[in-house]
Write a protein that binds this DNA or RNA. Structure first.
Lengths: 362, 362
DNA sequence: GGTCCGTTTGGAACCGGTTCCAAACTACGG
DNA sequence: CCGTAGTTTGGAACCGGTTCCAAACGGACC
């Protein structure tokens, strides 16, 4: 990541490339004084005015001769403009803030990587603000990022409240919601509904007639509601399939505790879990009860975490493309920053990965 | 994270708390104009000079009366100082940069969380720079963070090269190395050597006489060398234990491919893996060959990833305290920023977690 | 050669803070 | 009542860029 956007336009000519300077010439020559040279120094050394140098740097009209002189001096000194001074006047940075509820989640990590790599390509930087799943801190972060004059914000929220809306409106900075959807905010979601439907159909086709769906709180619209609704829809299409819905948290441990009672009470042939982590808990719980997977119980998840492939048996799951979605998000937020029109809602794809954790019945 | 350090000293009196202002009064009152009020406005409204307001904000000497006036005006307007203007003059921020090789690693995530939470406490912000395991980008990031005038840098490198040293010297900003150790750089490491020793003794005590050690490249001093050396040392103490050393990468998949040949060629009763991910690969590989864990083969890892508890069987492993280490790192870097003396090397603790993946022989 | 237009250039103001210095005010001892 | 020291205050310069405006320049055309 990093390296500020100096060449705002695509005009090839009077743009100088920051990288060259710091690495090639700057290093060594000036020792500890990294970028202590100012635009005034350059101007003096080149025998021109500050404004001319500034124009040169930003692609304004500069004469052939002058250009060369400035170019040379900048090359020799390893000059690199002071970001603060730039931002002070410009009142804007080339930083995109990303607000995440937690850093230790597969989905978050992958999404961040996607955002980071794409932003890098687009000459933006990513600033990550972690909220540790604290709603207040989510709002705080929005204000704080606004104060730092980030160009745009990508919000990986779990829930959008009235306060979120107010804050987003107040800060007046483009915000893109990722993973959740809201009619008043530009959103990028995974296709949770269709994914739920797909896994429902998949299980029905495999002949399961007694399925437990282990979801999460409906506060989380994407994971708690959409996936379940999609699944329920698919089940309605199928015949004679009995389903019971259960709820747990996102924590593996909670699923681990919850599952035994489900098994006893409902005796399903399959448990469809709303996340891979829940599925991992279910798997462990089933093993603890001495069940064989998939012969005695089939299990599926949602997410496509790499670890699911390495479990024994490999977990059948719905894969979402977090990294790609992150890339899309980066594209979108930059478009918003550039005041381009984009659609309110974008949807990222999914696919079912069939491994060994689901048995074929009948 | 976030919320800039406004009160540099601990003096209680003429410090105003930023949070109150943005939330309590700022919101709503000024609509979209978040922090458009400047210090000049405050000065005018309070009938004092800019310098006086500045002094008030930074804990300088201000009269009782004046204080009250300014306090009131600031409260009413929801003023919040412009960070860029501050940094422009101060040539320093309250941001700590963190350079990480990858975001999708358990160790990294947990460490970042630890850093973030501690820095928050200390009124610093964390800026994460991801390098996608690209050495050039590691150097780039150091320069870039320097340019952004971060107060200090926490470097989660996998390897320290000559270029690292040069760069660190050149940027003239305190750097703390985490997870690796270098005599010329302040370092915070996990006690890889002792951990290796501990697991070696542990396995010997369990009666294993034929152990495969599956490590990683010696380029990584901490994981590739220290853990192995510690392990080797413990084995030397024990009697009649045969060990063979193998090497793989950090990727689960590579371990998965590597392990079968080890099993055939060496027929160990146990595989000690240099990371939990490698152990996960080994576990899967063993299952694929129809082996029972731990009856047919014992497996251990390093790390203490949460997932290891959820595997079947639970993985015996050496737990490192990444989050706590992150907190320590944050403390250290802030001390360095404040020019306090700290020791060159700090060591973070570990403990062996005994689960079901190791069998007792004899 | 003069006029006009477009390009290049320099000077100065400005962004929003911090800091230095000197002036004004206060209090206290002699 | 004055001198002195200490505190409070305002003014101005400064940080390092960007931008506006007007002046200088250069070429084309009449």
């Amino acid at each position: 990541m990093f390296w500020g956007l100096l060449c705002k336009s695509e005009e090839a000519s009077p743009c100088y490339n920051e990288k060259n300077i710091v690495w090639t010439s700057g290093a060594g020559l000036f020792g500890v004084n990294v970028s202590m040279t100012t635009i005034a120094d350059i101007a003096r050394l080149a025998g021109v005015a500050k404004s001319t140098v500034s124009r040169y740097l930003n692609g304004g009209s500069v004469g052939e001769q002058t250009m060369r002189k400035i170019e040379r001096v900048i090359g020799e000194t390893g000059y690199s403009p002071n970001t603060f001074a730039q931002s002070l006047k410009a009142k804007k940075t080339n930083i995109i803030g990303t607000v995440v509820p937690r850093l230790d989640s597969y989905a978050t990590s992958k999404t961040l990587i996607g955002i980071d790599e794409k932003l890098r390509e687009l000459n933006y930087q990513m600033f990550v603000s972690n909220t540790s799943q604290d709603l207040d801190r989510e709002i705080e972060s929005l204000y704080s990022l606004a104060k730092q004059k980030v160009a745009g914000i990508i919000l990986l929220a779990t829930k959008v409240t009235e306060r979120h809306l107010e804050t987003i409106q107040e800060i007046g900075i483009p915000v893109l919601l990722v993973g959740q959807q809201h009619e008043q905010i530009y959103s990028l979601i995974h296709d949770d509904f269709e994914a739920g439907k797909a896994i429902g159909r998949f299980m029905a086709k495999k002949g399961h007639k007694q399925i437990a769906y282990l979801g999460v709180s409906e506060e989380d619209i994407a994971v708690g509601v959409k996936r379940k609704q999609g699944f329920a829809g698919a089940i309605k299409e199928a015949e004679e399939v009995k389903v019971r819905y259960y709820e747990t948290s996102f924590k593996i441990g909670d699923a681990l505790e919850k599952v035994p009672s489900i098994l006893e009470e409902f005796r399903p042939t399959a448990i469809v879990c709303a996340t891979d982590n829940i599925a991992i808990g279910a798997l462990k719980a089933a093993y603890s009860k001495g069940l064989k997977i998939p012969e005695d119980l089939s299990i599926t998840g949602f997410g496509g975490y790499e670890i699911t492939e390495m479990l024994n048996p490999g977990l059948t799951t719905v894969q979402f493309f977090y990294k790609e979605a992150g890339g899309m998000a980066a594209d979108k937020i930059v478009q918003l920053v550039n005041e381009e029109e984009i659609q309110m809602l974008s949807v990222s794809d999914f696919k079912i990965i069939e491994r060994e954790s689901v048995d074929i019945l009948s």
